[in-house]
């Protein structure tokens, strides 16, 4: 069935599809088989189809073996955990960078594959932005510090602010918040 057949107007199924397509590319990027994630659309009357799809998917995942141990995966547990954790940390950044594509409405199945490309996702991870505060320009005015959604900025009144890169989620709020007169927050590509 096609996605716009839903009579309710929320149509979240389009978004679910986008997130899945993105998720598959991310799996691929960190060396996991994208076949571990799948989305299928069906109506409430498609019980038999549901069973069929789930059975096939279970078989497919069983054939792949445990996470990271698949034929072309071969990632050690430590490495896997660290890759997963670095991806998890970038979720806010990815959501911001891909905001438009994540809310697109793909009506044509042929367009699924190309919605996110491997090159695009590889480059997304290779060119992760970072933000830092230029100490010479910072007037320690607390504006960015107050607005940072994750409390990643250290500092006090009259105490130059510093971004804790471990905590930073790269949302760019500080860049926007810093008064243009100072322009102390810088973006690194």
């Amino acid at each position: 069935m096609s996605l716009n057949e839903c009579n309710y107007i929320t149509q979240g199924n389009f978004y679910a599809l986008n997130v899945t397509l993105l998720g598959k590319r991310i799996l691929q990027h960190i060396g996991l088989n994208p076949g571990r994630l799948q989305i299928e659309f069906m109506s409430g009357g498609d019980g038999l189809l549901f069973a069929e799809v789930v059975d096939a998917f279970v078989k497919q995942v069983q054939a792949l073996g445990p996470l990271g141990k698949g034929a072309e995966e071969n990632i050690g547990s430590q490495a896997l955990a660290s890759r997963l954790s670095s991806v998890m940390k970038l979720v806010p950044y990815i959501k911001i960078a891909k905001r438009e594509k994540l809310t697109a409405r793909l009506t044509n199945e042929a367009a699924y594959e190309a919605h996110f490309t491997s090159e695009e996702i590889d480059s997304l991870f290779e060119n992760v932005v970072s933000y830092y505060i230029e100490p010479s320009a910072c007037k320690a005015c607390m504006t960015c510090l107050r607005r940072c959604p994750v409390d990643a900025i250290d500092g006090r009144k009259n105490w130059i602010h510093v971004i804790d890169q471990e905590k930073c989620i790269k949302c760019g709020t500080c860049l926007e918040a810093c008064p243009p007169l100072f322009s102390a927050v810088r973006k690194n590509f």
Binding site: A16, K95, I96, I169, C171
Partner: peptide, 10 residues
């Protein structure tokens, strides 16, 4: 419906 949760970056 939770659509907002899915798109919220933070």
């Amino acid at each position: 419906d939770g659509l907002c949760n899915a798109v919220c970056p933070t």
